[in-house]
């Protein structure tokens, strides 16, 4: 049978993609709506973007979110890469099953549970809640995603390169720095980008673990959205969509460069 698309296949793809993209497209178009009423079209305008620039609360929230996402992504990338090395290269070790459970569980754990658990921890050890507690929470949430991406890459490349270096007398650390790390670097970079996006996006866990003075962008958006649909929110959402789209295209190019097949990483990464 030829590889090719039947009429049914094309319809399934077209409807599926339309379903995925139409709502976002509508959101983007209506962010340029001159009318204050979000359901009535009043002509093209960029007034909501202009009024965003004067909205200090949103700008502050965005700055806090960006800083948290940057820090959380950096720490999560280091921890996630180490976890990937441990799971792929360390063979058997005591507590391995628990370890891999702890790595994968945050990927699917309902966020209300993770958020509540982390908050109760922070209260129990009496840390002041705010910027740092959200950063720790997001690091914990995102490191598993980095692990999964790096694992797929580690499984994909030729072990004999490392073995050759070792046989030629290179100590393990040197072998890692000169052979392994360059090979998995693109996957690590892709993991960083994805951890950054996830942190930027998270509302539930941030809302549990934050404190006074650390109102992240999703928390701000959520509190506005609960009161109803607003054109200004459409504008900030459009900006986020644009940034995320650029980031993902960059990350997927990196993954492609690294030769890791993104689809083998399991989760939609």
């Amino acid at each position: 049978m030829r590889r090719g698309l039947s009429f049914v296949n094309v319809t399934a793809l077209a409807l599926g993609l339309a379903f995925l993209y139409l709502p976002i497209l509508i959101l983007v178009i209506y962010s340029f709506n001159a009318s204050r009423l979000v359901t009535i079209w009043g002509g093209w305008s960029t007034r909501w973007y202009v009024s965003l620039l004067g909205n200090q609360a949103i700008l502050d929230a965005a700055w806090i979110s960006l800083r948290i996402a940057f820090l959380a992504a950096c720490v999560a990338t280091v921890l996630g890469t180490l976890a990937a090395l441990a799971l792929v290269r360390a063979g058997r070790f005591r507590g391995r099953l628990l370890f891999s459970g702890l790595v994968y569980a945050p990927l699917v754990m309902p966020e209300v549970i993770t958020g509540l658990a982390l908050l109760l921890l922070f209260v129990a050890v009496d840390i002041e809640r705010g910027f740092w507690t959200v950063t720790i929470a997001h690091t914990t949430l995102t490191m598993g995603f980095v692990t999964v991406i790096v694992q797929a890459r580690l499984l994909g490349f030729d072990r004999s390169l490392e073995e050759a270096a070792m046989d030629l007398g290179a100590p393990p650390l040197r072998t890692f720095m000169t052979v392994t790390l360059p090979l998995i670097a693109p996957a690590i970079a892709a993991g960083w980008v994805l951890a950054f996006m996830l942190s930027l996006d998270d509302f539930v866990i941030a809302n549990f673990t934050t404190g006074p003075g650390a109102r992240t962008l999703p928390i701000h958006i959520y509190s506005e959205v609960r009161l109803g649909v607003k054109p200004e929110i459409n504008a900030i959402c459009t900006i986020i969509v644009a940034v995320v789209a650029l980031g993902i295209v960059a990350a997927s190019l990196l993954t492609k460069l690294s030769g890791a097949k993104p689809e083998s990483s399991g989760a939609p990464l």
């Binding site: 959101l27 958006i221 959205v225 959402c237 986020i240």
Partner: peptide, 17 residues
């Protein structure tokens, strides 16, 4: 990429849409 892209576009925003 087309299937992945919406997934990474903020969850909150997609519900809001």
């Amino acid at each position: 990429l087309l299937i992945v892209l919406p997934f990474w576009t903020s969850f909150l925003i997609r519900v809001y849409a």
